[in-house]
Computed example of a mutant assay.
Amino acid sequence: MTSTPSDRFPRPEAYGEGSVWADRVGHRSLVGRNQRGVEIPIGQGEGEISPGELLKLALIGCAGMSSDFAIGRRLGEDFAMRLWAHGTSDGETNRYARIPEEIQLDLEGLDEAALARLVTVVGRAIESGCTVERSIVPGVEVTHRILGVEADPEARA
């Protein structure tokens, strides 16, 4: 299903592929939409997601999509993965100074060398392929850690 903005306001000249929009539906409450018909309630209320949470979801969504192929080559095509992004904005500066990300994978059966290679290829895949992170870094420190791997195995070498 495709979606276009209502005619309440004229579409901006820049409207096209990749455009998203948000319509105000109440006090500090919006509905974000894309052209594929997805709607996301944005705000601080029940059933809404905050802009900061959207930022963190965009980061981990991009990290997951960017690393999917590299992880699948090592763990098999049907691997399970959960990504986390943590942190709150600093009230004084009103910005996120750091957003730690964590990736959960089934690491059973991987030896230390395979773990080290996994950490390396995941980091490279995200660094080169994650448009969201590449767009906001170096303004925000974003870290990645695969849960279950004690430390960066390359750092021990």
Rank of each mutant, 00 (worst) to 15 (best):
I71F: 02
F79E: 04
R8I: 10
R11I: 11
G91S: 12
I146S: 01
L107Y: 08
R8A: 15
E13W: 06
V119Y: 07
P138D: 10
G87N: 07
P41G: 08
G148R: 01
P153H: 01
G64Y: 05
G43P: 01
L57Y: 08
V31H: 12
R8S: 15
R11F: 07
R33T: 15
W84Y: 15
E112I: 08
N34Y: 08
G64N: 06
E39T: 12
W21M: 09
L118I: 06
L54E: 10
Q35F: 04
P100K: 07
E108T: 15
K56I: 11
Y96W: 01
L107T: 11
T93Y: 00
L75Y: 01
V149P: 02
A151F: 04
G87R: 08
D68V: 06
T93P: 04
E154R: 09
G32A: 14
D23R: 10
P51V: 04
D111E: 06
R28H: 15
E112D: 13
S19C: 02
S135P: 03
I40R: 02
R36I: 09
P138W: 04
I126P: 00
S19L: 03
V20M: 08
A151D: 13
P51M: 03
T131D: 01
S50F: 09
A125W: 00
V20F: 10
G109Y: 12
G123N: 05
I126N: 00
R74Y: 04
D7I: 10
V137I: 05
A157N: 10
V38I: 13
L107D: 13
A85I: 02
I71G: 00
L115F: 03
R134Q: 08
R74C: 07
R124G: 00
I40L: 09
R8K: 12
R73W: 03
H86M: 15
G32E: 13
P138A: 05
S19I: 05
V140I: 14
P12S: 15
G109W: 07
D111Y: 11
